[in-house]
């Protein structure tokens, strides 16, 4: 079973994604802030990471940096509000994230992207 890590401070979105991805047969781990997110990266050996750009204690960029150091080949999907700085999003892409999903988003569409990246 493929392992997906969701790092998202909005519990509602994180739980909903958890429900949706479990429905597709993935094992899902969630973290609500940057620190627990980094610990989860080290501990859970994820096959894919979904992270928000704006999360407490660490920035999304720090999370991506850490994930890329530990698992350089693991695909990362960045969730972000459209209002967030373009520079941050560009920086995330430069670090090698695989996809970018702006909020508001369609969970089914995200599930399709996850499936494509994991395959």
């Amino acid at each position: 079973m493929k392992n997906i890590l969701i790092i998202e401070d909005d519990r509602l979105i994180s739980s909903l994604l958890n429900f949706r991805l479990k429905k597709d047969g993935y094992h899902v781990t969630t973290a609500e802030d940057g620190l627990t997110g980094m610990d989860a990266i080290d501990a859970s050996e994820p096959d894919l990471i979904i992270t928000d750009v704006m999360i407490p204690f660490k920035t999304g960029i720090e999370i991506i940096n850490h994930a890329k150091k530990v698992y350089p080949k693991v695909p990362i999907i960045v969730l972000s509000s459209l209002g967030e700085e373009e520079a941050t999003v560009m920086e995330a892409f430069n670090l090698g994230v695989s996809d970018f999903v702006p909020k508001p988003f369609n969970p089914n569409e995200l599930a399709v992207r996850v499936r494509r990246l994991i395959q």
């Binding site: 909005d10 509602l12 508001p104 569409e109």
Partner: peptide
């Protein structure tokens, strides 16, 4: 309402 703000389309 919170979900409505973060989702789009049919949702």
């Amino acid at each position: 309402i919170s979900l409505n703000k973060n989702m789009k389309g049919e949702f």
